[in-house]
Amino acid sequence: MQTLRTTSLEVRNNQLWILDQQALPQQKNWQPAHSVAQLVDHIHALRVRGAPLIGLSASLLLALLAEQGATRPELAEALNVLRAARPTAVNLMNNLDRMKTALAEHDYDAALSAEALRLVAEDKQLCDNIACAGSTLVKPDSQLLTHCNTGGLATAGVGTALGVIAYAHQQGLVKNVWVDETRPLLQGGRLTAWELGELNIPYQLITDSMAASLMARGVVDAIWVGADRIAANGDVANKIGTYSLAVLAQYHGIPFYVAAPHTTLDRLCPNGGAIPIEQRAASEVTGVAGSFGSVQWAPANAAVYNPAFDVTPAALISGWVLDTGVVTPAQVQEGIFQP
Protein backbone atom coordinates (compact mmCIF):
# COMPACT_ATOMS: atom_id res chain seq x y z
CA MET A 1 0.00 0.00 0.00
CA GLN A 2 1.15 3.51 -0.69
CA THR A 3 2.59 5.64 2.11
CA LEU A 4 -0.19 7.51 3.89
CA ARG A 5 -0.33 9.89 6.83
CA THR A 6 -3.12 11.74 8.60
CA THR A 7 -2.93 13.52 11.95
CA SER A 8 -3.31 10.22 13.83
CA LEU A 9 -2.68 7.38 11.34
CA GLU A 10 0.34 6.44 9.27
CA VAL A 11 1.03 3.67 6.77
CA ARG A 12 4.71 3.14 6.03
CA ASN A 13 6.59 0.08 4.85
CA ASN A 14 3.23 -1.72 4.60
CA GLN A 15 2.64 -1.38 8.36
CA LEU A 16 0.05 0.63 10.28
CA TRP A 17 1.12 3.09 12.98
CA ILE A 18 -1.10 5.16 15.27
CA LEU A 19 -0.46 8.37 17.20
CA ASP A 20 -1.02 7.50 20.86
CA GLN A 21 -3.81 9.87 21.93
CA GLN A 22 -3.42 8.87 25.56
CA ALA A 23 0.09 10.35 25.60
CA LEU A 24 -0.94 13.71 24.12
CA PRO A 25 -0.30 16.56 24.61
CA GLN A 26 2.88 15.88 26.58
CA GLN A 27 4.26 13.30 24.14
CA LYS A 28 3.80 12.50 20.46
CA ASN A 29 4.34 8.75 20.34
CA TRP A 30 3.68 6.67 17.24
CA GLN A 31 2.75 3.14 18.23
CA PRO A 32 2.68 0.02 16.02
CA ALA A 33 -0.72 -1.39 15.08
CA HIS A 34 0.58 -4.28 13.04
CA SER A 35 -1.90 -6.92 14.23
CA VAL A 36 -5.57 -7.19 15.10
CA ALA A 37 -4.69 -7.74 18.77
CA GLN A 38 -2.56 -4.58 18.84
CA LEU A 39 -5.22 -2.43 17.20
CA VAL A 40 -8.02 -3.74 19.41
CA ASP A 41 -5.88 -2.97 22.46
CA HIS A 42 -5.25 0.56 21.14
CA ILE A 43 -9.00 1.06 20.63
CA HIS A 44 -9.89 -0.23 24.09
CA ALA A 45 -7.19 1.96 25.68
CA LEU A 46 -8.32 4.97 23.59
CA ARG A 47 -4.91 5.39 22.02
CA VAL A 48 -7.03 5.26 18.87
CA ARG A 49 -10.33 7.10 19.33
CA GLY A 50 -12.96 9.06 17.44
CA ALA A 51 -15.69 7.20 15.56
CA PRO A 52 -14.39 7.98 12.03
CA LEU A 53 -10.76 7.23 12.91
CA ILE A 54 -11.59 3.89 14.53
CA GLY A 55 -13.35 2.75 11.37
CA LEU A 56 -10.50 3.91 9.14
CA SER A 57 -7.79 2.28 11.25
CA ALA A 58 -9.60 -1.07 11.15
CA SER A 59 -10.07 -0.81 7.38
CA LEU A 60 -6.43 0.02 6.74
CA LEU A 61 -5.21 -2.82 8.93
CA LEU A 62 -7.37 -5.35 7.08
CA ALA A 63 -5.99 -4.15 3.76
CA LEU A 64 -2.41 -4.36 5.01
CA LEU A 65 -2.93 -7.85 6.40
CA ALA A 66 -4.26 -8.93 3.01
CA GLU A 67 -1.19 -7.51 1.27
CA GLN A 68 0.97 -9.44 3.74
CA GLY A 69 -0.66 -12.71 2.66
CA ALA A 70 -3.53 -13.30 5.09
CA THR A 71 -6.09 -15.71 3.68
CA ARG A 72 -9.75 -14.92 3.11
CA PRO A 73 -10.88 -16.91 6.21
CA GLU A 74 -8.22 -15.22 8.34
CA LEU A 75 -9.34 -11.81 7.14
CA ALA A 76 -13.00 -12.65 7.77
CA GLU A 77 -12.14 -13.58 11.35
CA ALA A 78 -10.06 -10.42 11.76
CA LEU A 79 -12.97 -8.36 10.46
CA ASN A 80 -15.34 -9.86 13.03
CA VAL A 81 -12.91 -9.25 15.90
CA LEU A 82 -12.36 -5.63 14.87
CA ARG A 83 -16.10 -5.09 14.45
CA ALA A 84 -16.65 -5.92 18.12
CA ALA A 85 -13.92 -3.59 19.38
CA ARG A 86 -16.17 -0.53 19.91
CA PRO A 87 -19.90 -1.31 20.04
CA THR A 88 -21.29 2.25 20.11
CA ALA A 89 -19.37 3.84 17.22
CA VAL A 90 -21.28 2.85 14.08
CA ASN A 91 -18.63 4.19 11.67
CA LEU A 92 -16.62 1.06 12.48
CA MET A 93 -19.49 -1.18 11.40
CA ASN A 94 -20.27 0.87 8.29
CA ASN A 95 -16.65 0.87 7.14
CA LEU A 96 -16.22 -2.83 7.78
CA ASP A 97 -19.40 -3.62 5.84
CA ARG A 98 -17.69 -2.10 2.81
CA MET A 99 -14.49 -3.99 3.52
CA LYS A 100 -16.51 -7.21 3.79
CA THR A 101 -17.88 -6.58 0.30
CA ALA A 102 -14.33 -6.04 -0.98
CA LEU A 103 -13.24 -9.28 0.71
CA ALA A 104 -15.73 -11.17 -1.47
CA GLU A 105 -13.97 -9.99 -4.65
CA HIS A 106 -11.84 -12.48 -6.60
CA ASP A 107 -8.72 -10.29 -6.24
CA TYR A 108 -9.57 -9.45 -2.64
CA ASP A 109 -6.18 -8.11 -1.56
CA ALA A 110 -6.23 -5.40 -4.23
CA ALA A 111 -9.94 -4.75 -3.58
CA LEU A 112 -9.37 -4.31 0.16
CA SER A 113 -6.47 -1.92 -0.39
CA ALA A 114 -8.44 0.17 -2.86
CA GLU A 115 -11.48 0.30 -0.58
CA ALA A 116 -9.47 1.31 2.51
CA LEU A 117 -7.75 4.13 0.64
CA ARG A 118 -11.11 5.19 -0.79
CA LEU A 119 -12.56 5.38 2.73
CA VAL A 120 -9.69 7.60 3.88
CA ALA A 121 -10.08 9.94 0.90
CA GLU A 122 -13.83 10.05 1.39
CA ASP A 123 -13.47 10.91 5.07
CA LYS A 124 -11.25 13.87 4.23
CA GLN A 125 -13.85 15.14 1.78
CA LEU A 126 -16.69 14.49 4.24
CA CYS A 127 -14.91 16.62 6.84
CA ASP A 128 -14.45 19.48 4.36
CA ASN A 129 -18.13 19.32 3.41
CA ILE A 130 -19.23 19.33 7.06
CA ALA A 131 -16.98 22.30 7.86
CA CYS A 132 -18.32 24.26 4.92
CA ALA A 133 -21.99 23.50 5.69
CA GLY A 134 -21.65 24.08 9.41
CA SER A 135 -19.84 27.40 9.15
CA THR A 136 -22.96 28.93 7.60
CA LEU A 137 -24.62 28.53 11.02
CA VAL A 138 -21.88 30.39 12.89
CA LYS A 139 -22.62 34.05 13.52
CA PRO A 140 -19.95 36.77 13.65
CA ASP A 141 -18.10 37.25 16.93
CA SER A 142 -19.31 33.87 18.23
CA GLN A 143 -18.36 32.26 21.50
CA LEU A 144 -18.78 28.54 20.98
CA LEU A 145 -18.72 25.63 23.39
CA THR A 146 -17.60 22.13 22.44
CA HIS A 147 -17.34 18.77 24.18
CA CYS A 148 -14.89 15.88 23.79
CA ASN A 149 -12.60 15.94 20.73
CA THR A 150 -13.85 16.14 17.16
CA GLY A 151 -10.85 17.44 15.23
CA GLY A 152 -8.20 16.00 12.98
CA LEU A 153 -7.15 13.59 15.73
CA ALA A 154 -10.52 11.83 15.41
CA THR A 155 -10.77 11.78 11.61
CA ALA A 156 -8.66 11.64 8.47
CA GLY A 157 -9.49 15.26 7.68
CA VAL A 158 -10.07 18.53 9.53
CA GLY A 159 -12.63 17.00 11.88
CA THR A 160 -16.36 17.29 12.38
CA ALA A 161 -17.54 19.81 15.00
CA LEU A 162 -14.00 21.12 15.46
CA GLY A 163 -13.64 21.27 11.69
CA VAL A 164 -16.67 23.58 11.59
CA ILE A 165 -15.13 25.76 14.29
CA ALA A 166 -11.77 25.88 12.50
CA TYR A 167 -13.36 26.83 9.18
CA ALA A 168 -15.54 29.49 10.84
CA HIS A 169 -12.44 30.87 12.57
CA GLN A 170 -10.71 31.19 9.22
CA GLN A 171 -13.66 33.32 8.13
CA GLY A 172 -13.23 35.58 11.17
CA LEU A 173 -16.44 34.44 12.86
CA VAL A 174 -15.10 32.92 16.10
CA LYS A 175 -14.23 35.09 19.11
CA ASN A 176 -13.59 32.29 21.61
CA VAL A 177 -14.09 28.56 22.14
CA TRP A 178 -15.09 27.15 25.52
CA VAL A 179 -13.53 23.68 25.81
CA ASP A 180 -15.14 21.20 28.18
CA GLU A 181 -12.49 19.08 29.91
CA THR A 182 -14.76 16.13 29.12
CA ARG A 183 -14.46 13.91 32.14
CA PRO A 184 -13.52 11.28 33.06
CA LEU A 185 -10.93 10.88 30.28
CA LEU A 186 -10.25 14.56 29.55
CA GLN A 187 -10.32 14.39 25.75
CA GLY A 188 -11.24 18.05 25.73
CA GLY A 189 -8.53 19.14 28.11
CA ARG A 190 -5.82 17.01 26.54
CA LEU A 191 -6.76 16.86 22.86
CA THR A 192 -9.15 19.64 21.83
CA ALA A 193 -7.15 22.27 23.73
CA TRP A 194 -4.01 21.02 22.01
CA GLU A 195 -5.60 21.07 18.55
CA LEU A 196 -7.05 24.57 19.01
CA GLY A 197 -3.65 25.78 20.15
CA GLU A 198 -2.02 24.28 17.07
CA LEU A 199 -4.61 26.10 14.93
CA ASN A 200 -4.14 29.40 16.79
CA ILE A 201 -7.83 29.52 17.68
CA PRO A 202 -8.54 31.37 20.95
CA TYR A 203 -9.98 29.07 23.60
CA GLN A 204 -10.52 28.71 27.33
CA LEU A 205 -10.57 25.35 29.07
CA ILE A 206 -13.35 24.67 31.59
CA THR A 207 -14.52 21.75 33.69
CA ASP A 208 -17.77 20.18 32.51
CA SER A 209 -19.71 21.55 35.47
CA MET A 210 -18.86 25.15 34.54
CA ALA A 211 -20.85 25.13 31.28
CA ALA A 212 -24.17 26.02 32.91
CA SER A 213 -22.79 29.15 34.57
CA LEU A 214 -21.35 30.34 31.26
CA MET A 215 -24.70 29.88 29.55
CA ALA A 216 -26.42 31.79 32.34
CA ARG A 217 -23.97 34.67 31.84
CA GLY A 218 -24.84 34.82 28.15
CA VAL A 219 -21.33 34.10 26.89
CA VAL A 220 -22.16 30.94 24.92
CA ASP A 221 -23.68 31.56 21.48
CA ALA A 222 -23.89 27.94 20.30
CA ILE A 223 -22.79 24.43 21.23
CA TRP A 224 -21.10 22.16 18.71
CA VAL A 225 -20.57 18.43 19.31
CA GLY A 226 -19.84 15.34 17.25
CA ALA A 227 -21.55 11.95 17.28
CA ASP A 228 -20.71 8.27 17.54
CA ARG A 229 -24.09 7.17 16.22
CA ILE A 230 -27.21 8.91 14.91
CA ALA A 231 -30.40 6.86 15.10
CA ALA A 232 -33.14 6.94 12.46
CA ASN A 233 -35.27 9.26 14.60
CA GLY A 234 -32.39 11.73 15.06
CA ASP A 235 -31.34 10.70 18.57
CA VAL A 236 -27.57 10.98 18.98
CA ALA A 237 -25.08 8.96 21.02
CA ASN A 238 -21.97 10.92 21.90
CA LYS A 239 -19.38 11.18 24.66
CA ILE A 240 -20.89 11.16 28.14
CA GLY A 241 -21.85 14.69 29.18
CA THR A 242 -23.32 15.65 25.81
CA TYR A 243 -26.93 15.12 26.92
CA SER A 244 -26.57 17.47 29.88
CA LEU A 245 -25.24 20.20 27.58
CA ALA A 246 -28.27 19.77 25.32
CA VAL A 247 -30.67 20.10 28.25
CA LEU A 248 -28.87 23.23 29.44
CA ALA A 249 -28.84 24.67 25.94
CA GLN A 250 -32.60 24.28 25.58
CA TYR A 251 -33.23 25.96 28.95
CA HIS A 252 -31.03 28.91 28.00
CA GLY A 253 -32.26 29.16 24.41
CA ILE A 254 -28.89 28.32 22.86
CA PRO A 255 -28.55 26.44 19.54
CA PHE A 256 -27.21 22.91 19.93
CA TYR A 257 -25.65 21.43 16.77
CA VAL A 258 -24.38 17.94 15.97
CA ALA A 259 -21.73 17.61 13.25
CA ALA A 260 -21.03 14.17 11.79
CA PRO A 261 -20.48 12.38 8.46
CA HIS A 262 -23.20 10.23 6.93
CA THR A 263 -21.13 7.21 8.01
CA THR A 264 -22.30 7.95 11.57
CA LEU A 265 -25.96 7.59 10.59
CA ASP A 266 -27.57 4.24 11.47
CA ARG A 267 -30.89 4.08 9.62
CA LEU A 268 -31.57 0.60 10.99
CA CYS A 269 -31.38 1.84 14.59
CA PRO A 270 -34.88 3.15 15.40
CA ASN A 271 -33.98 5.41 18.33
CA GLY A 272 -31.45 6.17 21.03
CA GLY A 273 -32.76 3.44 23.28
CA ALA A 274 -31.52 0.86 20.77
CA ILE A 275 -27.95 2.17 20.73
CA PRO A 276 -25.54 -0.06 22.72
CA ILE A 277 -23.68 2.02 25.31
CA GLU A 278 -20.18 0.88 26.17
CA GLN A 279 -19.33 0.54 29.86
CA ARG A 280 -15.71 1.27 30.66
CA ALA A 281 -13.31 0.48 33.49
CA ALA A 282 -13.92 1.78 36.99
CA SER A 283 -10.30 2.97 37.16
CA GLU A 284 -11.14 5.80 34.77
CA VAL A 285 -13.40 7.31 37.45
CA THR A 286 -11.57 6.36 40.64
CA GLY A 287 -8.35 8.04 39.51
CA VAL A 288 -6.43 9.20 36.48
CA ALA A 289 -3.61 7.81 34.36
CA GLY A 290 -1.56 9.13 31.46
CA SER A 291 1.94 9.76 30.23
CA PHE A 292 2.64 11.33 33.63
CA GLY A 293 1.81 8.12 35.53
CA SER A 294 -1.27 7.32 37.60
CA VAL A 295 -3.01 8.36 40.78
CA GLN A 296 -6.05 7.04 42.64
CA TRP A 297 -8.31 9.37 44.62
CA ALA A 298 -11.36 7.19 45.36
CA PRO A 299 -11.50 4.29 47.83
CA ALA A 300 -10.08 1.12 46.32
CA ASN A 301 -13.43 -0.69 46.64
CA ALA A 302 -15.63 2.17 45.39
CA ALA A 303 -18.56 1.03 43.24
CA VAL A 304 -18.49 2.80 39.88
CA TYR A 305 -20.92 3.42 37.01
CA ASN A 306 -18.96 4.49 33.93
CA PRO A 307 -20.82 4.65 30.59
CA ALA A 308 -18.66 6.04 27.81
CA PHE A 309 -21.60 7.68 26.03
CA ASP A 310 -25.04 9.14 26.61
CA VAL A 311 -27.95 9.72 24.24
CA THR A 312 -29.30 13.15 23.33
CA PRO A 313 -32.93 13.06 22.15
CA ALA A 314 -33.65 14.59 18.76
CA ALA A 315 -36.04 17.08 20.36
CA LEU A 316 -33.06 18.86 21.97
CA ILE A 317 -31.05 19.23 18.75
CA SER A 318 -31.18 22.41 16.65
CA GLY A 319 -29.59 20.90 13.57
CA TRP A 320 -27.62 17.91 12.28
CA VAL A 321 -24.73 19.04 10.08
CA LEU A 322 -23.79 16.20 7.72
CA ASP A 323 -21.50 16.16 4.72
CA THR A 324 -24.66 16.40 2.62
CA GLY A 325 -25.71 19.64 4.31
CA VAL A 326 -27.70 20.90 7.28
CA VAL A 327 -30.66 18.76 8.35
CA THR A 328 -33.40 20.58 10.28
CA PRO A 329 -35.62 19.24 13.07
CA ALA A 330 -38.59 19.43 10.69
CA GLN A 331 -36.80 17.22 8.15
CA VAL A 332 -35.96 14.68 10.87
CA GLN A 333 -39.59 14.60 11.97
CA GLU A 334 -40.56 14.01 8.34
CA GLY A 335 -38.32 10.93 8.34
CA ILE A 336 -35.23 12.01 6.40
CA PHE A 337 -33.09 9.59 8.46
CA GLN A 338 -35.54 6.70 8.10
CA PRO A 339 -34.52 3.71 5.94
Results as ranks from 00 to 15, higher is better:
Ala227Lys: 01
Ser244Cys: 10
Leu117Met: 13
Pro140Ala: 00
Leu79Cys: 10
Gly172Leu: 07
Ala308Ser: 08
Ile165Lys: 02
Pro52Thr: 07
Pro202Val: 01
Asp20His: 10
Leu137Arg: 11
Arg86Pro: 07
Ala249Pro: 03
Leu214Ile: 13
Trp30Thr: 11
His147Asn: 05
Gly273Leu: 12
Gln338Pro: 02
Ala63Asp: 12
Pro73Gly: 00
Gly172Phe: 06
Gly152Phe: 03
His34Asn: 07
Asp141Leu: 14
Phe309Pro: 10
Ala33Met: 04
Asp310Trp: 08
Asp97Ile: 11
Asp228Phe: 00
Leu162Phe: 00
Ala121Ser: 13
Ala133Tyr: 00
Leu60Trp: 15
Gly218Cys: 12
Leu144Asp: 00
Ile223Asp: 03
Ala193Val: 04
Thr207Met: 04
Ala84Trp: 06
Ala303Ser: 09
Glu198Cys: 14
Val177Pro: 00
Arg47Pro: 06
Glu115Ser: 04
Trp224Met: 02
Ala314Val: 13
Val81Phe: 06
Glu334Lys: 08
Thr207Val: 15
Ile277His: 09
Gln27Asp: 02
Val304His: 07
Asn176Cys: 08
Val219Tyr: 03
Ser318Trp: 07
Ala249Asn: 04
Ser291Gln: 13
Ala193His: 02
Ala58Phe: 04
Trp178Gln: 08
Tyr108Ser: 12
Gly152Leu: 13
Gln250Asn: 13
Cys127Ile: 05
Tyr305Cys: 15
Trp17Val: 01
Ala303Cys: 12
Ala121Met: 08
Glu67Leu: 06
Gln27Ser: 08
Gln170Trp: 05
Tyr203Val: 03
Ile230Leu: 09
Ala63Trp: 15
Glu284Gly: 03
Met93Pro: 01
Ala246Trp: 07
Ser135Pro: 04
Ala281Tyr: 08
Gly159His: 06
Leu316His: 13
Ala84Gln: 15
Ala114Lys: 14
Arg86His: 12
Gln279Ile: 04
Ala232Ile: 09
Ala216Pro: 03
Gln26Met: 14
Ser213Gly: 13
Asn149His: 02
Gly50His: 04
Leu248Asp: 05
Arg5His: 13
Gln187Asp: 10
Ala211Lys: 04
Pro184Cys: 05
Asp107Tyr: 13
Asp180His: 02
Gln15Phe: 11
Pro140Met: 08
Leu96Gly: 01
Ala330Leu: 15
Gln125Arg: 09
Leu137Lys: 03
Gln26Asn: 08
Gln21Gly: 05
Val81Leu: 09
Gly159Val: 04
Lys139Gly: 07
Asp141Thr: 02
Ala104Cys: 08
Asn176Glu: 08
Gln171Cys: 14
Leu56Glu: 14
Glu195Val: 05
His147Ile: 10
Tyr108His: 07
Pro276Arg: 11
